[in-house]
Amino acid sequence: MALPRPILPSAVRPPRFARLREDVLAQTVSQELGRLINESLSCRQACLSGRWPTSPALDTRFQECLSSFLTAEVGANYVKVNQGFEYLERISEAALQPTQFATDYRRIVGDQHLPIHAAFIAIAVNYLAEFLDLMPDYAEASGQGRRRDPVTVYGNVGAIHSQVNHSSISVANTVTNIGATIQAVADRGETSVAEAIRALAEAVQRDPGLAEDLRAQLLDHVADVADAAAAPEEPRRLSRARAALAAITAAAGTSSQLAQAIDTWHDALSQFF
């Protein structure tokens, strides 16, 4: 008897507008999403390396985090884009139990199961990274702060005004010039970190394969990383930088130049943040 055709992931994106519950802070939700994204990326790497994932119930924890919103579309869109992830995680958990069935299952389907699990994680992370990028707008809509002002970025990363949909790039409030920020980091003696951030900015700016809206989002993330590198003693900036790095890493699959920059400078950035 033939098995039914599986439901394929939908091309669903996070809503442009959403409101948080009154008892929830946008900053807290962002930090938790950033931690879960980082954990998911480690879990995905384990799958790609042939190791069975051990992070418990990522799908459930993501949905719980998204339940912080009054807007039902937030969680509903996530479920649409990643149907079957929870079931797959249950199978993975059962396969790690000390039973003969689990041993046989890993032996028979291990080579097929792990790439599928990694693909589901990637789908979830891509949705959530885009969702995280919209958090400043969600916070403003929920009465928890203003949207960050648009800033035209010049300096060592080059003038990028009018290169992304003929508009300025929205970056962190305290960052008015990514190039100047990079130079300040280098002047403080963190030359490897400065070079790493410069490489990320150049990769995002120059890769012709990136969609323009994604390029704008990624440059915003690079600005958050530079902002934190300039003031590493401020926990809030570091938290935003970690979430930004997670989003950049998640998007690297769409950009060969960005993937190469992350691979080259991963140690410098991870040691700093």
Rank of each mutant, 00 (worst) to 15 (best):
L96Y: 04
S49V: 00
I108T: 10
E89N: 05
L25R: 11
I37C: 06
A95T: 08
V29A: 09
G110C: 06
K80E: 14
L88E: 03
E93P: 00
E22S: 15
L96T: 07
Q63E: 13
A76E: 15
F101V: 14
L36S: 04
F62R: 00
L58Q: 07
A76K: 13
E93F: 08
S67D: 15
R35L: 12
Q63I: 06
E22N: 11
A76Y: 07
L114Y: 00
D104C: 10
S42P: 00
I108Y: 04
F101G: 12
Y78D: 04
P115Q: 09
A94M: 12
S67G: 11
N77R: 12
Q45I: 03
S67I: 01
T99A: 07
T60S: 14
A57G: 02
E73K: 07
Q83F: 09
T99K: 05
N77A: 11
V24D: 02
F101L: 14
E86P: 00
H113G: 02
A76P: 00
V109E: 11
Q63R: 15
T60L: 15
G50Q: 06
A46Q: 09
T71R: 04
L41K: 03
T71K: 01
D59T: 10
S92G: 15
L58W: 01
Q100E: 12
Q112G: 08
W52T: 03
L88W: 07
D23L: 08
F62G: 01
S40A: 15
A26N: 03
E32F: 03
L36N: 07
T103H: 12
E64L: 14
G50W: 05
G75I: 01
V29G: 02
F85G: 00
Q97H: 09
Q97W: 05
T103K: 13
S49C: 10
R35M: 10
G84F: 06
C43L: 08
V81I: 09
E86M: 08
A76I: 10
Q83M: 11
Y105D: 01
